[in-house]
């Protein structure tokens, strides 16, 4: 038994680009973030901070573009199909698959052996992808709250509320730090599942836009 076919209709070229941008930003943000947290070699602090802020702006622009594109780019919503529909349907959990959620959990915990019928993205997968939006916004909010500690900016009260919510400047620093681990865990699981579920056709398509 082989894996389902992966067609260009499932991942249009524009989303190959947005996915690349996400990946490169995440790697850059995590590396410079770790450096800003604890500078493990000398001479890079100014560069690390500049890169960190720049990449976050790029990531936010990319996220905004990706969300807007989801409303009008058409791509395949079903596994192994070339029939296209609005991309947004890939994001939102479907009513017809709500009973497949627990079955998917059981499958990944080896309590069942046949794959679960689902759309292009499984029930768990949809929730995980949808969650990336609030996670990125959360990282942006906590990050900017750390970036604007002087009260001279007019926008400060918007962030001061968050600083107070997390119990002060140290609290929001730790919240931002743990948020990065959530992103890292997501990326680990995401890459792992994409690797065991047909590494060659899937990665070839999403990174090189190559059908196999």
């Amino acid at each position: 038994m082989s894996h389902e076919g992966h067609y260009r209709e499932a991942h249009p070229l524009i989303f190959v680009f947005t996915h690349w941008i996400n990946l490169l930003c995440m790697i850059g943000l995590a590396f410079t973030g770790f450096y800003i947290h604890y500078p493990f070699f000398a001479g890079f602090m100014n560069g690390a901070r500049t890169i960190h802020f720049t990449l976050m702006f790029i990531l936010l622009i990319n996220l905004t573009s990706r969300v807007i594109l989801a409303f009008w780019v058409k791509d395949a919503n079903q596994l192994g199909s070339k029939a296209v529909d609005t991309d947004l349907k890939n994001w939102l959990p479907q009513e017809e698959n709500k009973h497949q959620f627990m079955e998917t959990v059981k499958y990944y915990l080896f309590f069942r052996n046949t794959r679960v019928i689902s759309a292009k993205y499984g029930a768990l997968q949809k929730i995980a992808y949808l969650a990336t939006v609030p996670i990125i916004l959360y990282m942006a909010y906590t990050g900017f709250a750390l970036y604007t500690p002087a009260q001279s900016w007019g926008i400060w009260p918007f962030f001061a509320a968050g600083v107070s919510f997390f119990g002060g400047a140290m609290g929001i620093r730790i919240a931002h730090y743990f948020g990065m681990w959530v992103v890292i865990l997501f990326t680990m699981v995401h890459a792992y599942l994409a690797a065991i579920d047909g590494f060659k056709p899937l990665w070839g398509l999403i990174f090189l836009w190559r059908e196999s």
């Binding site: 082989s2 009973h99 046949t114 794959r115 065991i196 047909g198």
Partner: peptide, 19 residues
Amino acid sequence: VSASKGRIKGVPQESEKKF
């Protein structure tokens, strides 16, 4: 465990939703 169960090569999909 996935490799030992042959999942990496691909697993047949259920023919009908359990529900």
